[in-house]
């Protein structure tokens, strides 16, 4: 669990240094979610939640500001809930699908916090891009998580 938290934190910090590819607020790869998803499968739902919580708190300390903390916390929480709900309903080879739904949930959660913070309904205009980007990034992080889970299982820890 500590290893997964550390890995998630490192990925999160490195990703924060990469300049944004698309000039749209809130769009990013979300690579750290690979670790949340992996933890849901390799450990347990509860421990995955803890991995997420630690990553979000430590990530805000090392790489972010109090407001980015709110977004990743709420978005991450929604994504984690989705993963918990779907874990037993979707076969493991379809982890990428869970990842897609979780990524979209993450972005919607982020949007909700955003709306509450700036109190401007106009930013809803970003919702379609955020959903589209969630589907795309979720597919890739999901595939990455699938390979990681299989690789770790092979090591028979």
């Amino acid at each position: 669990m500590a290893v997964l938290t550390a890995a998630a934190l490192i990925i999160f910090i490195i990703e924060a240094q990469i300049p944004p590819l698309v000039p749209v607020p809130g769009v990013k790869l979300g690579l750290a979610n690979i670790m949340t998803l992996t933890a849901v499968y390799l450990l347990s739902r509860k421990e995955a939640g803890l991995v997420l919580l630690m990553r979000v708190i430590l990530g805000a300390v090392f790489a972010g500001s109090p407001s980015t903390f709110l977004f990743s916390a709420f978005g991450g929480l929604l994504a984690w809930l989705v993963m918990c709900l779907l874990k037993d309903r979707v076969s493991e080879s379809r982890i990428w699908l869970i990842s897609v739904i979780a990524a979209v949930a993450h972005n919607i959660g982020q949007m909700i916090v955003c709306m509450l913070v700036v109190k401007t309904p106009g930013i809803l205009a970003y919702l379609p891009v955020l959903i589209a980007s969630g589907i795309i990034t979720g597919t890739f992080t999901g595939i990455a998580a699938l390979y990681l889970i299989r690789a770790v299982r092979k090591m028979k820890l």
Binding site: P23, P25, V117, G122
Partner: peptide, 28 residues
């Protein structure tokens, strides 16, 4: 930290606002 608001370029009409989330700034 992210400079997304700077990269968003010029706003000339309604539609998509410029947002700087870390500073809670919105230009519409």
């Amino acid at each position: 930290p992210d400079k997304i608001c700077v990269h968003m370029g010029r706003l000339t009409g309604a539609g998509v606002p410029i947002v700087c989330m870390p500073h809670r700034l919105v230009i519409e």
